[in-house]
């Protein structure tokens, strides 16, 4: 029985599109659900910072001979901590400082590649290279998916409270900074795992656009996350299909489709 399963699995693997398709489907479920959580917590700018912070860690990891994903998650987490510190202080120049760090981190990553004498396909890191995704990429996506499920299972009510009233949540004894850190770590994992599917820069589109649609009239956060994921799956599958038909890069195509999806957003009603 096991032998048949292994043979079937290898046969499936030989069909080149199965692994990339699974990666984009998981990414299509995960990113919009995560994005919904982040939008309701008003943390999209922090996400942008984390995604730009991934590259320096990735370059260092390649130079040190460790897994690039680990390096990416580590420097993404450092970005999350920097974002957390800046959010807590929240001075009037907060956005400008955040954007400077964001651009500087990307610049540092680009500079490290020649300085460390390493070879990194910058285009595939930043904009994805879905069609070459392998089982390792799929595994990374599944690990991030499990981390997200754990965050939701153990902290859903607290995350709702923090999103609704952060001060009130802290006053009622919820460890807001710990949960925000867990949120930052999960975000870093999600961004790194989306690297092959859509790239660390374009992932922001998949984090935000389906979430905006899913949030429309959703009676609760989890309903919004499920709806966002459904939009995300449709968007990802469509992007994958069109990329194959028209021989285009899937990552940028999904990002462009996100712009078209914004047209489906109802205009804000006036109260």
């Amino acid at each position: 029985m096991v032998a048949i399963a292994v043979v079937n699995f290898h046969q499936i693997q030989e069909t080149w599109w199965v692994t990339p398709f699974c990666v984009i489907l998981f990414t299509g479920i995960l990113c919009p659900a995560m994005g919904t959580l982040l939008i309701t917590h008003k943390r999209l700018l922090q996400v942008n910072l984390i995604s730009h912070c991934v590259l320096p860690g990735l370059a260092l990891a390649v130079a040190l001979g460790v897994s690039p994903s680990l390096g990416g998650v580590f420097s993404g987490l450092l970005g999350a901590l920097a974002a957390e510190g800046l959010t807590n202080k929240k001075n009037e120049n907060y956005e400008a400082i955040m954007n400077t760090i964001l651009a500087g981190s990307l610049g540092l990553g680009v500079l490290l590649i020649p300085l460390l004498g390493i070879r990194i396909d910058l285009e595939s890191v930043l904009f994805g290279d879905l069609l070459t995704a392998n089982l390792g990429d799929l595994l990374r996506t599944i690990i991030s998916f499990l981390a997200f499920i754990c965050l939701i299972l153990f902290g859903y009510e607290k995350l709702v409270h923090i999103g609704l009233d952060p001060e009130g949540a802290a006053e009622s004894g919820i460890k807001v900074s710990y949960l925000n850190l867990a949120l930052g770590l999960t975000t870093a994992l999600v961004i790194v795992s989306s690297m092959s599917a859509i790239g660390v820069i374009l992932v922001i589109a998949l984090l935000s656009t389906p979430a905006l649609l899913g949030l429309q009239q959703a009676p609760s956060l989890w309903v919004a996350m499920v709806r966002s994921s459904i939009f995300g799956i449709i968007l990802s599958a469509l992007g994958f299909l069109l990329a194959i038909v028209f021989n285009l890069s899937p990552g940028p195509l999904v990002a462009v489709l996100c712009i078209l999806l914004i047209a489906l957003l109802p205009s804000k009603r006036n109260n």
């Binding site: 709702v160 609704l164 009233d165 949030l215 009676p219």
Partner: peptide, 15 residues
């Protein structure tokens, strides 16, 4: 409060 948070009245009260 973040009044745009996706939550119903009973969800808020239960918190």
């Amino acid at each position: 409060l973040n009044w745009n948070f996706p939550i119903t009245v009973e969800g808020l009260v239960a918190l």
